[in-house]
Write a protein that binds this DNA or RNA. Sequence first.
DNA 1: TCTATGACTCCGG
DNA 2: CCCGGAGCCATAG
Length: 113
Amino acid sequence: MAADTQNFFEKVYEVVKQVPYGRVTSYGAIAKYLGAARSARMVGWAMNASHTMEDVPAHRVVNKVGLLTGKFHFDGSNLMQQLLENEGISVVDHKIVDFDKHFWDPWKEMPNH
DNA sequence: TCTATGACTCCGG
DNA sequence: CCCGGAGCCATAG
């Protein structure tokens, strides 16, 4: 694993950790923040490796329409949804209700980009 | 080296 | 927002 790859993963985790309680963001938003707007899939790949980390709230990262696309990558069949609901976020059919209200844009919210 | 795949996104309908 | 099609790019085999 190359050093820059480690750095990329680390950056993704940094941003995800900054997501406030009860808020969510998207892969594309993170990719954009990292300067790799066309590589949203790589953010997803980084999340795939996030299971090795402890403080990475991967459940707060969903796709652009608030769909829990990574749900099946969690241990439990509905663990991701449970975690979100635990934070006061309503989830119906793998999708976040009022996603635009809970959306947290790192590009917009974080100062140093 | 090439092909397939995917925790994505944009576009047009 | 849902649906189908196209673009995108790192990894796996």
